[in-house]
Simulated assay, not measured.
Amino acid sequence: MIELIRLNGHTFLLNAFLIEQVEAFPDTTITLVSGKKIIVQNEVNEVYRLVNQRFRQIGLVAIHKDVEG
């Protein structure tokens, strides 16, 4: 789950696995796999960072390590 802020200023938790796409119209609009759209105050790059941070915490994003060989 990631914590986001609705346009009315209230925070809520969103299951990051349900996100299909994130766009700026100019407000950040999150489209879920169900087709539901949620508009948030968070910037697109912040949502991206939160999702990647959560996936990294649960082990879904491997840490890339450059190895010379």
Rank of each mutant, 00 (worst) to 15 (best):
E68W: 03
F12M: 14
N15H: 14
L13K: 11
T31G: 10
I5E: 15
I30G: 11
V47A: 09
V22Q: 02
Q21D: 05
L50H: 08
V22Y: 03
V67N: 06
V44R: 02
Q53I: 07
V51Q: 05
D27Y: 14
Q57V: 03
N8A: 02
V22N: 01
V51C: 13
G59K: 11
E20W: 11
I39K: 00
K37V: 08
I19H: 08
N8Q: 09
E43Y: 12
K36I: 01
Q41R: 04
F55V: 00
V44H: 01
K37S: 11
P26W: 02
Y48N: 14
F17H: 03
R54N: 06
Q53V: 07
V44C: 04
P26H: 08
I63L: 06
R6H: 10
Q41I: 00
T11M: 03
H10T: 03
I38H: 07
K65L: 10
L4F: 03
A16G: 01
V67E: 08
N8V: 00
L60G: 09
I58C: 02
V47M: 10
I2E: 07
L32A: 12
L13R: 07
Q53K: 11
N52Y: 15
I58G: 00
I5G: 08
D66K: 13
R56D: 02
L7S: 14
E20M: 06
M1I: 07
Y48H: 12
F25P: 00
K65P: 01
V47F: 12
I63Y: 04
K65S: 06
E46V: 11
K36Q: 10
T11D: 04
H64M: 12
Y48Q: 12
V22R: 01
A16F: 11
Y48R: 10
I30R: 05
I5C: 13
I2S: 04
G9I: 02
E3A: 05
A16E: 12
T29V: 13
N52V: 12
R6E: 10
M1R: 12
Y48S: 13
Q21H: 04
N42M: 04
Y48D: 11
A24H: 02
L32G: 07
V61E: 13
I19R: 07
L14K: 03
N8D: 15
L32T: 10
I2Q: 07
I38Y: 06
L14D: 07
V33E: 14
K37E: 10
V51E: 06
L14I: 07
E68N: 07
R56M: 06
F12T: 13
K37H: 08
L4K: 05
I30M: 07
E68M: 05
V33T: 15
T28P: 14
N42D: 15
V33C: 10
L4V: 01
F12L: 14
T29E: 04
V33M: 14
P26K: 09
K65W: 03
T11C: 02
A16V: 08
I58W: 06
